[in-house]
Amino acid sequence: MEPACQEWSPGPVDLDRLDRVLAEHAGGGGSLIPVLQHAQDAYGYLPRVVIERIARALGVSPAQVFGVATFYAQFRLKPVGKHVIRVCHGTACHVAGAEKISEAFSRELCVPDGETTPDRLFTLESVACVGCCSLAPVAMVGGETFGRLDGPRVGKVVKDFRKREGA
């Protein structure tokens, strides 16, 4: 694992929540992906112990669970910050300058794309089309969408979120 992850330890994982997810969603064909989705909802990511426990509960090998978890972009094996910033790199946003938007976020947050800030407030990610192409370039912070971004507006968005957090 990269050093960034080692600095911050997620602490012990409370497996009771996983048991509730398993009780509700395990069983029947094709339940692995929904179980992983709900487990990730519960923990924010998929800790190793959770993956192992899911494998045991569904009667498959941890390798198979790991294989599925790494195939799909939705699943994370590392914890994320409080606010996930998703910069759209869909076609419309690309031609409208998405690359510069990612760079601007990266500059404001002082972390590269894909990483989490040391204060664990923000994680910066790139995604494909979020479906608001007419507002390109677009980024989502948590559930909020921000359109028609440019370098200066990115700075403002980050500042506003920092203010909300009192940071």
């Binding site: 064909g29 692995l32 989705q37 599925v68 799909y72």
Partner: peptide
């Protein structure tokens, strides 16, 4: 069934593999 973020899962046979809980 909610997809999990893989473009290839739009392809019909991959999509069915994904519904079945496998790599798409």
């Amino acid at each position: 069934k909610e997809g999990a973020g893989a473009f290839v899962c739009g392809e019909e046979t991959a999509l069915m593999a994904s519904i079945e809980g496998r790599r798409g």
